[in-house]
Amino acid sequence: MLKNENSPEGRQPTTESEARIFVEDLEVAYATPSGSRVHAVVDFSLDIRRGEFLTLIGPSGCGKTSILKAVGGLITPDGGDVRIGDTIVTGPVPDQVAYVFQDFALFPWRTALGNVEVALELKKVPKAERRERAREALATVGLADAADRHPHELSGGMKQRVAVARALVSNCDVLLLDEPFGALDEQTRLVLGTELLRILESLGKTIIFVTHNLQEAVYLSDRVVAMSARPARIKEIIEVDIPRPRSPDIMVSEAFTEIQRHLFSLLYEESALAMNQP
């Protein structure tokens, strides 16, 4: 649900008309079992450009998922707001934002095709069109032949691609990817990352991507946001000035390894901090 915002002091078109998602002073807190509140995100502000691939990287439990959920309207922030274009996010925005979750969130009783179709079902797209578009999306991720299989007959990598197909099928401008490769082994992850990049570079979507993996972050992104331990704050934003389209051999280039090393030193401290948090 998007609420139109016609405030006169709206954003200046000259500096920010390129931006797609605005996160302003975002604050997210959760109630603990003992009754107190713990802040997952505090004073988090970030503008994401149209068509940008932006990665959030930070220690586990620092608040990355909370930021994504706030951007997609799945949780209500305790402070600040999120805008997509010129409208404030107050609830899920299925017409503009699609998700891929870490555990894929597939329906075990639906086939791969049915799992992709469900996104369109919820939008009341007629059955024939639904079929057609879902098949196309599956073909895009290279799963045309697995359309009739159930999730338990698919490998981890295939499930992940079904989830990506489902996110692509509704033609949303914004993709939120929450550790989409988190449940996969290193090799699969590398191959799928490369493949995902190939698909996404041709689609020009605005993407927020969450990962733990430094290499993946640098390889995929236009900008990488290094986050502090909980509560999530921005530690540094790193521009990845490596031209696109990218191919896996850039991973051994000087520029690439330099950025990766820098990120590592930023995150090492924070991860050590995070480890000692309750």
Binding site: P92, P94, A105, L122
Partner: peptide, 14 residues
Amino acid sequence: VDPNLVTSVRAMGG
């Protein structure tokens, strides 16, 4: 019931 599936359907507008 898988809570992630519930979240996912919410995200898709359900």
